[in-house]
Each structure stands twice: as structure tokens, then as C-alpha cells.
Write a protein that binds this DNA or RNA. Sequence first.
DNA 1: CATAATTAAGATATTCACATGATAATATCC
DNA 2: GGATATTATCATGTGAATATCTTAATTATG
Lengths: 132, 132
Amino acid sequence: MFSGTAVYALRAVVYLAEHSEERPVRVAEMAANLDVPQNYLAKILNELVHSEILNSTRGKHGGFQLAVRPDGLSLLAVVSPFDRIEQERRCLLGRSECSDHTPCAAHHRWKELGTQLAAFVQETTVADLLGN
Amino acid sequence: MFSGTAVYALRAVVYLAEHSEERPVRVAEMAANLDVPQNYLAKILNELVHSEILNSTRGKHGGFQLAVRPDGLSLLAVVSPFDRIEQERRCLLGRSECSDHTPCAAHHRWKELGTQLAAFVQETTVADLLGN
DNA sequence: CATAATTAAGATATTCACATGATAATATCC
DNA sequence: GGATATTATCATGTGAATATCTTAATTATG
């Protein structure tokens, strides 16, 4: 459903929500705990900084912190720099305009699934992923 | 949701359901009509033959035919040689055993989405995709 | 100011889905 | 049996996602 990169981003954001309240968290610490390649994670975190989801501070005692409150951060916001999930809602058979003109029998249920997925990523926040 | 290869397979099976009642259909014809690379399509069809979803006959007047009735052929059967969609139902964060031990708040709704997707591909048949 | 710690960024490497090309195997038709 | 049409299979190429490596930029501390 999500790309590997997007899942990394979600895991990282959850980790920061749980650990970066006070001090910034270093990439090395996160990479070790989340089992993500460190340099790759650094790039992902950097993109999240550009998306204004994280703050970063360089130098000694630097690291990453959440820039917004977890309950105001939707999964869609975290994931969208990496996955274009809006495109998931196309025709099952890849036809360009199946839906409007000549929907097949399965089309409506299929579209409903896409709608539910979209609602999930929009309405679910990082706060909903905490506490385990 | 599905890989490109799986969508090719679906399109091909639908095409055969509509055109292979009498005679076998050649790859070249399907590739042209479905806008799929011919050699790539040939490989996909061959895998569907091995999955006993299609029959093939070589030589002059050869081609591919559906081996089963469209209303008895689930989307899951068509797609599963190419996509491991059962794996879609894991934890959102890629944790190995999130679900059983310490489900997060979002886990139940996420799992429900996966269940609905699984039900869709199991219950929907190729016959449901015809007629447009 | 020098040093160490850390993110930022660019270049390169790897892997895999996707695609192409060429050849072999098989069947039909004259 | 030879020519032709078709699937079957293997070998190779390509591009994007994933991952690594290296260097630069920035900051705190003694």
C-alpha cells in the first residue's frame, strides 16, 4: 500500500513523537532503533524538514525534532512527499476513464475502497499510532 | 494497489473472456488491443497458463483461451502469481507483530481496510469486470 | 580558535520491476 | 517434408526505488 520509503518516514515520525519532546534526536540513534539504513534515513528526514514536518539543528547536540503536534499531523502529510497516493483511486484495469462513462460492475466497490483508504490517511494522525 | 504486471494480467484475462469463447486469441492481437508490450504480455500469459487459468495452443491457429469460466475466476487467482497481496495486511509501520500484542489506535481500522481489500479480490470475479 | 559532533547534499552503487530481443519448440498447411 | 505461424524460453537491457559513500556546512565546547 505504501512504499518502503514512506513506511520508514512513518516509523521515524512516530519515534520522534515519542522521543523528541525535550531534546533533538540524532540520526544514528533513530537508525539503530528503527532498523533503517542511516544515510538513507538522513535523506528521508531531510525531506520531512523541507516539508516542515520536522525541525533540524546541526552541530553538537543537534538532531531532529517534530515541528508540529502529533495529533495535528496526518499520515497523508508524512507520506505524501514520497508516495502519490491520490493516484490509487483510478480504474482497476488502468483504463483512463472507465469510471465516468461505462463503469463495470466491480467499479463502484473498487472506488469505495480507494475512498476509504484516502479517508484513512487523511483522518488518522501520528498520535493515533502512539502508545504501543 | 496492484503492480503493473498484475493489471496487465487482469486486462488480458478480461479480453480473453470477451474474445476467446470460440477460437484461441494470438498474443499479437491482444498486445495491440490492450496496449501492452507483446513479449512482456507473452510472459505474463505463460505464467497464467502455468497457473491453469489459461490454455495455450501452439502453431498455426494457435493462441490463448480461458481455461475456466469467468464467473468462477476470482481476481485473486489472476493476480496472485504476480503480487503477494496477502502481505498487504501487515502492520502499517512494518512492525512484525504489532497487531497481536500491542495494537495501536489506528491498527484496527487499518486492518479492516486490508480485510476489505482481501474480500474484494476474493469475491469479485472476472465476470464482474465484463460488459463495458 | 581548534576540535569534535552533527546535519546537508551530491555522487555513486545496488536491486528489482518492467521491458525488449533472439532463439527454440511445436503445430498447421500445402 | 518443407514452409510458416505461433507459443515457450532464455538472455539482455533500462529506469526507478532503494541504499551507500564521501564531502561540505554548521554548531557547541573547551
